[in-house]
Simulated scan of single mutants.
Amino acid sequence: MEDDQKDGMLETRLVRVRGLVQGIGYREACVRRAHALGVTGWVRNRIDGSVEVMVQGSPEQLAEMCAWLSEGMSAALVDRLEVTEVPPPFARFEHFERLPTL
């Protein structure tokens, strides 16, 4: 990921995942997938039953992560993803973590 940051290829997306995505281990699986892809950011449950994910990486990494968020966990029933591009300047995350519910 260091090379992506130096080359200006680093992008950030805020993703809201709607559907049956709480109470099934979705956030923990999300953290594992993010680590496997080498993306940084965070994931948390929202009071409205959705899951919110801030993800940072190369365009290819973000595409792979969004694909996983949509259909990567068999126990999840994702209705839709709401993806918002976060324009620079943005905070740079050092790792990917699970945050408390908001």
Rank of each mutant, 00 (worst) to 15 (best):
E60Q: 12
E82N: 05
R13E: 13
R13D: 11
R13A: 11
G19Q: 09
L99F: 13
I24W: 05
A75T: 13
G38F: 07
G57Y: 04
M9Q: 13
R46S: 11
P89Y: 06
G19V: 05
M73C: 09
N45L: 00
V31G: 06
V17C: 00
L10R: 11
R92T: 15
C30H: 01
P88N: 01
G23A: 09
L77Q: 14
E94G: 14
A29K: 14
N45M: 04
V17W: 05
V78R: 09
M1N: 05
F93Y: 15
W42Q: 06
V17Q: 04
E85V: 15
A29W: 06
D4P: 01
R33L: 04
S74T: 13
E82Y: 02
T12A: 13
T101Y: 00
G8D: 10
L37Q: 03
P87W: 06
M9D: 07
D79E: 15
E82R: 02
G25F: 03
R80A: 12
T40Q: 08
G23E: 01
V53A: 02
P88Q: 08
G25T: 04
S58T: 11
R80C: 12
L99W: 13
D48C: 01
V39S: 01
C66E: 15
E85P: 08
E64I: 04
W42H: 10
S74Q: 13
A63V: 10
G72R: 10
E28V: 03
M54R: 14
A76L: 04
T101C: 11
G23W: 03
M65N: 05
R98N: 03
Q5M: 13
N45H: 01
Y26Q: 07
L37S: 08
T12P: 00
V86M: 12
R32Q: 09
C66H: 09
V17D: 07
C30K: 03
F93E: 15
Q56E: 03
F96P: 00
R16D: 12
G38D: 08
D7A: 15
Q5N: 12
P88G: 04
N45D: 08
D79G: 11
P59R: 03
L69Q: 02
G41T: 05
A67E: 12
G41N: 06
R98T: 01
E28I: 00
M1A: 10
R13G: 02
V53E: 04
A91K: 15
T40R: 11
S58M: 03
E60S: 10
G72L: 02
D3K: 15
R18E: 13
V78I: 09
V55N: 08
P100V: 11
E28S: 12
R18N: 10
G8C: 11
F93L: 13
A67P: 06
N45I: 00
G25L: 07
A76D: 01
Q56M: 03
C30Y: 04
E11D: 01
E60N: 08
E71N: 12
V55R: 07
K6I: 09
D7G: 09
R92H: 14
Q61V: 08
A34D: 04
R32M: 06
T84W: 02
A91T: 14
L14Q: 13
M9W: 01
L81A: 00
L14A: 12
V31C: 06
G8V: 04
S50F: 09
